[in-house]
Amino acid sequence: MNIFRLTGDLSHLAAIIILLLKIWKSRSCAGISGKSQVLFALVFTTRYLDLLTSFISLYNTTMKVIYIGCSYATVYLIYMKLKATYDGNHDTFRVEFLIVPVGGLAFLVNHDFSPLEILWTFSIYLESVAILPQLFMISKTGEAETITTHYLFFLGLYRALYLINWIWRFYFEGFFDMIAIVAGVVQTILYCDFFYLYVTKVLKGKKLSLPA
């Protein structure tokens, strides 16, 4: 455990909690892509199946349980409890275009051809693109609530910190996981455009809106 990974995990946790609290407090999930949230729930479910087979640390287990729990709570709020506020008309990204190629790739490029390992690989690849429905929704409506941009910022920050963590681990532990690194780089790149808008607009007190 190094400081980059810890702050990365905490940043990820912050993102998840910010989103859940925003939806819960405002009793509305307007502007949030339910599809991205279902993909993240799928990511956590397929990645953390090792909760049932191996114990790494209390920290590891606790964080996994919190991530899974919060992601399902978010999906529940969007599709069940607060369904009336869900903006499905703007959430039109075709997720099969992500799931099918990502599933195929997980079968072809993995560390070990076993069910758990293929599901882990699937979750890594899927996480790298799971935010696309949300970014697509923002590009479609041309704007995002400021709190939603904070959520995206912490989610992107988590990825950037994990990249530094991997550089650190490579130098000090000789550890590297090519699948996680390549997917992590792809995922971080997807946030770059958003980071630019966040810094130039949201941090200066303006609402995030895109030119028509």
Binding site: R47, D50, N60, W120
Partner: peptide
């Protein structure tokens, strides 16, 4: 199966 594959990150 390769038992050495372990994922300690989140």
């Amino acid at each position: 199966a390769d038992e050495s594959v372990s994922h300690d990150e989140l």
